[in-house]
Design a binder for these strands. Structure first.
Length: 565
RNA sequence: GCGCCAGUAGCUCAGGUGGAUAGAGCAACUGCCUUCUAAGCAGUAGGUCAGGGGUUCGAAUCCCUUCUGGCGUACCA
């Protein structure tokens, strides 16, 4: 549970404050003027491992030039038993600290001790969090459009679990409403076309044109023949939906498992209707005076809660809108199931809804004052083939399915690629993806892992297994490459914390790519096989720590860590 | 019109809540395998951080404004 990067950083403030107090007792500085400074990690390590700007921050109030103030700090500071071996003044008055052997050794010991739990923290204090993601319409197979949300939601869940949250993954199945009716009518049309010929039956406007619908119709026909031919259309469609939905849901589950996503719960929209929960929730809003009727429809006074427009809850035809159902669904998440925080992973095409919806959820009558509803809005994926933009739509049936994509580029590459920063538009070039072999960064990272594994195995063959006792002498690991590698290893806990805080699991991609880069540099500069025994052992331990950390990071992203390549 | 997200190297993108000389991968060019995996390493070249103002010791980062692109603004979900 150690976060040594932060521990070292936080300790600097204490060291400086003690130095300040000493200067006060020497009467070189006035009392009570310890400056609020910031400690950061400089980009360029010639400026130290940490840089504090206290001398610059305090220059004005203490009426001393920054550099003079810095000199006082340096002369009074006591670094013995600290994480640092030196501090120097640089530039306009930065205090640059350099980490000590003590710190480097502690990093490696921590990784060995915590093992697979390394990187975890108690940041979340067990807060009960639900992450709802993918939630693709069950009217067809999942498409490449679901690939991004899938990875983001799943990786965010992993990151938050490691950061100490009690996380539940949920898939919301829209098995009711308009699109399901349309789904039934689409199958119906294909079924009737099978019997009467394609020309004889009109296909519904806005129907689902995909091959999968034809296949469902064919499957029904093969099982039951012309049994539905003389049936009332409504009843027929109901039968087809009853057949088609479970089939599609099972297929989605299968494809998601292949994509290494496992949901804790598949929540059916129909359950909210059947139990009367939607009705009850709308009644709640009605009784509280949050609604009004207009043109036979029931409207929510959403502008009262800060939204830019009101919303229809119940259409003039008597059916509830998705909006009413969504309110009921979220009330269920918080009230009935007791989640403290809910994170919905939605595409940017829903962001307008997210803003208005968040406003609605503040309605006092819903009783969610102490609850937290957040959205992870990810920008759209732009599909291109070379220079041509590819349109994706489930309705037109022209979408590339997730499963086909996985056939083409593999699960590892796909998960790594789609774990990109949520708020930037992502361009996905199919031509590039297909030949995305060695130029994909995922292989760079996996290669580092495989390299370590085979090295350790080869060394063990020669009787030089990684030592399991005797501790680590980090003072031997004193090249620039070794120090940079260890610092990156120390960074994992902090990266996970930040990824959880910012809902940005793509940080882990960048982190692990940099870790691999630092390992490759170390590997090229530091021989292990023919090093002195003590140095060899220390380096072997460093290799093992790196291997463990890469494996942890890749697991978070959902990518395998191969032992051979 | 209004709202949200973006605009950084030829291409795809980083840039840790204002810090020191703006980075990486790919593409281009040059070196490095009789020595632990060359799917690697080292190096060269490539920039008016969309434009313009402002805030301060200091701005890619914060504020204002203009331009460009994506998405939304349904009794669809």
């Amino acid at each position: 549970m150690a976060n040594l990067i932060e521990e070292a950083k936080l300790s600097i403030d204490g060291l400086l404050e003690k130095a300040y107090e000493k200067a006060v007792s020497n009467e070189t500085l006035p009392q009570g003027g310890f400056p609020q400074g910031k400690v950061e990690i400089p980009k360029d390590t010639t400026n130290g491992d940490y840089a504090a700007n206290h001398a610059m921050a305090g220059a004005k109030s203490l009426k001393l030039p920054p550099r003079t103030l810095a000199e006082i700090f340096v002369s009074e500071i006591d670094l013995s038993d600290s994480y640092f071996e030196s501090v120097e003044i640089a530039g306009p008055g930065f205090l640059n600290f350099r980490l000590s052997d003590n710190w480097y050794g502690k990093v490696l010991e921590t990784i060995l001790r915590e093992d697979e739990a390394y990187g975890c923290s108690d940041e979340g204090h067990g807060e009960k969090v639900m992450i709802e993601f993918v939630s693709a319409n069950p009217t067809g197979p999942m498409t490449i459009g679901n690939a991004r949300g899938g990875v983001l939601g799943d990786a965010l869940a992993s990151v938050m679990q490691r950061a100490g949250y009690n996380v539940s993954r949920e898939f919301y199945v829209n098995d009711a409403g308009n699109q399901v009716d349309l789904f039934g009518k689409s199958i119906e049309a294909r079924y009737l076309q099978l019997i009467k010929g394609e020309e004889a039956v009109d296909f519904p406007e806005n129907g689902y044109h995909g091959e999968d619908i034809k296949n469902l119709a064919k499957a029904i026909y093969e099982r039951d023949g012309e049994k539905y031919l003389d049936m009332d259309s409504d009843e027929r469609c109901r039968s087809f939906v009853e057949f088609g939905l479970p089939y599609n849901i099972a297929l989605m589950k299968q494809h998601l498992e292949r994509y290494r996503i496992h949901f804790d719960n598949w929540f059916l929209e129909s359950a909210l209707h059947n139990s009367g929960y939607v009705e009850e929730t709308v009644k709640l809003l009605e009784d509280a005076g949050c609604t009004y009727e207009k043109e036979d429809a029931l409207w929510l006074r959403n502008t009262d809660f800060g939204a830019d427009k009101d919303e229809v809850l119940r259409r003039s035809n008597g059916f509830y809108t998705y909006y009413a159902v969504d309110i009921a669904y979220h009330r269920n998440k918080f009230i009935e199931r007791g989640f403290d925080r809910v994170i919905d992973v939605w595409g940017a095409d829903h962001h307008g809804h997210a803003i208005r919806f968040a406003a609605s959820m503040t309605a006092p009558v819903l009783g969610l004052q102490n609850k937290k509803l957040d959205f992870l809005i990810m920008q759209m994926v732009r599909l291109v083939r070379g220079s041509e933009v590819v349109k994706v739509s489930k309705r037109t049936g022209k979408a590339l399915t997730l499963n086909d994509l996985l056939d083409e580029i593999g699960v590892d590459a796909c998960r790594f690629f789609f774990n990109a920063k949520p708020d930037t538009h992502l361009e996905f070039d199919l031509d590039l993806a297909i030949r995305q072999d060695s130029e994909n960064p995922v292989y760079y990272v996996q290669y580092a892992h495989a390299r370590i594994c085979s090295l350790i195995a080869a060394m063990a063959e020669e009787g030089h297994a990684v030592p399991t006792s005797g501790g680590v002498d980090a003072s031997l690991l004193n090249t620039e490459q070794e120090r940079e590698l260890i610092k990156q290893l120390a960074m994992l806990t902090e990266e996970i914390r930040l990824a959880a805080r910012d809902y940005d699991p793509s940080r882990i991609n960048r982190y692990v790519t940099e870790l691999a880069a630092r390992f490759h540099r170390f590997y090229n500069n530091c021989r292990i096989k023919d090093a002195e025994p003590k140095l060899r052992d220390a380096r072997l331990i460093l290799c093992e720590c790196t291997e463990k950390v890469i494996a942890i990071a890749l697991e978070i992203v959902g990518v395998t860590a191969p032992e051979k390549m």
